[in-house]
Amino acid sequence: MYKDFKGNKVYLSTGGLNLVNDKETLCFVHGAGQNHYSFTQQIRYFVSQGYNVVAPDFPGHGFSEGYQTTSIEEDMLWLSELLAFLKIEKATFIGHSQGCLTILELAEKKPELVMGLVFVAGAMSIPVNDFLIDTSINNPEKAYDLMVTWGQDIYGSFSISDWPGHNHLAEGNAVMKMNDPSVLSTDLKSCNLYENGKQAASTININCLAVLAKFDMMTPLKKGLQMVENIKQCDYKILECGHFLPIEQPKELNALIKNYLNSLK
């Protein structure tokens, strides 16, 4: 659905349904250069499981208008204001990649909003190499190509997918092309600049879940495990896939999130 928020048209996927006050809310936070389509196989699944689902396209991403935020701190503020605007007082946040940095920051600065946290292919910091940042500035389409290739494990090369007929490499590219060409470089710079992850992780006092990918080349497994160690109570699971875990192993991810949500009840 579209909302007029802070003077701009903002899109949030709710799985096609209106938000209902008495349901628990799950908020999916996408990664760099992505939009709500990162969670195509999660959004409607969890709507059917009885949750309110909100998966916003951050400003300039997907269908959302507006000036892009340029830091993780700004992402966090924008998200918390959006939730206030939607009258959502508390939610479980599921972040992917850069989205994990955003929800780490939210957990420290706005803990009152947080019911639960799921980090998907996340880490406390996501340094980005200069080559990828330069490419994202000078030749965004090449950068999309690099990211989808690095981001999926070998099954992506063979278009292996549970979705009948889907070619995830091309689809990943098409999703990134939906954004303004400047979006990816701005996101990557935001990731690169963010230094508060370790501090934010250390303040988390609730049970969390981290779902990490064995063959992740964007946020390597080692860095994901460091994040787990820095959070007081963080269960974790490692799936045999690449960085784009929500599309590579959707059913496994959904089952893990579902179990985690049940554990919060």
Binding site: S159, I160, S161, P164, G165, H166, N167, A170, E171, A174
Partner: peptide
């Protein structure tokens, strides 16, 4: 849909550079 047909679809999508088939 069917798994054998899905293999064909995924092969055709990748050969033609499409997102899906």
């Amino acid at each position: 849909s069917n798994p054998t047909i899905a293999t064909l679809e995924q092969r055709l999508a990748s050969l033609d550079g499409g997102v899906s088939c």
